[in-house]
């Protein structure tokens, strides 16, 4: 029996919300980045769901591109985190305030 797309879309929305809460509530930049990965994954789940609903694999292609962008984002984000917090006492996003006026 095939599960209706609505269920998957609701699941995707819930995962996206958890990711948004993670980005806002946590001040550890690594956990913030991981929450951003959760956001990417939630969006991908919606894309794949609609791909099956329409029996059209453009959704799969799009999800594939999102995964690539997520990989690039994770690499650059982690490089920035590593460089920024190597010389700071805590790993805390609020401590990276050099540009604050």
């Amino acid at each position: 029996m095939i599960v209706a797309p609505e269920n998957y879309v609701a699941l995707s929305a819930v995962l996206f919300t958890i990711g948004v809460v993670g980005v806002i509530a946590r001040r550890n930049p690594l956990i913030m980045l991981m929450s951003i990965e959760l956001l990417f994954n939630a969006a991908n789940l919606a894309l794949v769901t609609y791909a099956r609903a329409w029996v059209n694999n453009v959704g799969h292609i799009f999800a594939f591109l999102v995964i690539t962008v997520a990989a690039a984002e994770a690499a650059i984000g982690l490089a920035i985190v590593a460089v920024t917090f190597r010389n700071l006492p805590h790993v805390d996003a609020d401590d990276a305030a050099v540009l604050k006026g």
């Binding site: 958890i18 809460v21 806002i24 509530a25 001040r27 805590h90 790993v91 805390d92 609020d94 401590d95």
Partner: peptide, 18 residues
């Protein structure tokens, strides 16, 4: 070393925004 945990203070507004 993780910085001082500010999560509790911001958790409620974050969940509301979520």
């Amino acid at each position: 070393e993780v910085g001082p945990d500010r999560a509790p203070r911001i958790a409620v507004p974050a969940v509301l925004f979520g």
